[in-house]
Amino acid sequence: MLRIEGLTKRYQNRTAIDHISFHVPTGSVVGFLGPNGAGKTTTLRIIAGALGPDAGSVTIDSVSITEHPLVAKAKIGFMPEHVPLYPEMRVVEFLRFRAELKKVTAKDRNNAVLRAMSEAQVDDVQNVRIETLSKGYRQRVGLADALVGDPPLLLLDEPTASLDPNQIREVRSLIRKLAKNRTILLSTHVLTEVEAVCDRAVLISRGKIVADGPIAEVTSRYEAGSFRLRVRGESLRVQEILSNAPRVTQVQVSPQAGDICTVCVTFSSDFDRELEHLVAALVADGIGISEVRPEQSRLEHVFSELTREEAP
């Protein structure tokens, strides 16, 4: 569906994206991950046709965005990070305008707008002026705009940025619904979002792709992680057992009330098996364990490993 080859963009002396290549297969939901300033938004703006590349190509269904921009753009629904809307328009007026701009025929326009409003769940505010809507609703109107005309490819740039937890849940649920019959490239730096809705992940750091593939494959390449344990026992003994275990790179013990302490333990690799051994060793030493939980998700660990040298 979407193929990017050697894409490069420079801003004066700074290279925002540097010969990046990846593809998004039809029907998949791909998370485009990276820290702030890594080049995600620049990449998405080039794919959407708002910005021209200095080198490389973007094709959507084999149509080049630079050679046939009008045809290619008709295949894309783009929701930028800061959803731009005309505040003085009502939701339905805005979507009708967008539908006409996207060349939806007069006969189909009304249905296209109703369908987009229903999918993005904004039909209850269709006659409300955009300037009076909450941020959550504005995000949804932006999503409805991306959906108008039923484009096969959706580009969503930080769709849950600055939303409250309830709104984030709602937008994620919407994306999951949309993913059933569309190809989606979801740009974000919220890793739980990618783990929740994506099949694949493309990681970008300092303008270069540093990982690309199914999430399980990406995380398996960087087997390492941290766990937090809540244990009952003498803290020095806990520290001794953990520090002597193989592949443990760091141990932090924080004594709590009584003989309870919490421990943060970090493994270098292959932590599934080592964690089992470590738990068994603690139990064998008479130390009680009431909780074991990952300190960070595997993807989160991969993300921090691969983007560690990112600018402050």
Binding site: R45, A48, A50, K73, I76, F78, P80, Y86, L101
Partner: peptide, 14 residues
């Protein structure tokens, strides 16, 4: 200023 220029730049408009 409003950023709505992106609506036009990303639409099939010359």
């Amino acid at each position: 200023r409003q950023g709505t220029i992106d609506l036009l730049l990303t639409a099939p408009v010359t």
